[in-house]
């Protein structure tokens, strides 16, 4: 089965890095996009197997998207520099694993693989 991941990250260099990292490992990347609105409209076209979200998107928080993903049963991980992202982005982020930022490739791959299994 094809593994797809939606990437939401406002910093373009980091977005590119995550995209290339995951593409090298056999993921098909949807996005990356920098805003909740863009991500939402991508969800209308196609539901990804998992999503990888930055918490602070510059002028907005990723929270509404996390809520949308939860209601669509799409599991997601966070790639955030915050130690406790739920304090910034709300309870909906509380259960999501955080792969951290800077993001180590090994941890990213393990966490996403685990999200696929669950």
């Amino acid at each position: 089965m094809e593994k797809t991941v939606l990437i939401v990250e406002d910093e373009y260099l980091i977005a590119m890095d995550l995209k290339f990292m995951l593409e090298r490992r056999g993921w098909r990347v949807i996005g990356p996009v920098a805003t909740v609105a863009e991500a939402s409209s991508l969800l209308e076209v196609e539901l990804p197997s998992v999503a990888l979200l930055d918490v602070n998107l510059g002028n907005e928080l990723v929270t509404p998207l996390a809520e949308e993903l939860s209601s669509l049963d799409v599991p997601f991980a966070l790639a955030s520099a915050y130690d406790r992202p739920e304090l910034v982005g709300g309870a909906v982020l509380g259960d999501a694993p955080n792969v951290g930022k800077p993001t180590a490739e090994a941890r990213l791959l393990i966490v996403l693989a685990k999200l696929l299994e669950d």
Binding site: L13, I14, M16, D17, P102
Partner: peptide
């Protein structure tokens, strides 16, 4: 500040990796 620093380090990491 810590958050920004981590972001900046992420950026450096991205450049090195790519």
């Amino acid at each position: 500040l810590r958050h920004r620093m981590k972001n900046l380090l992420g950026l450096v990491r991205a450049l090195a990796n790519q």
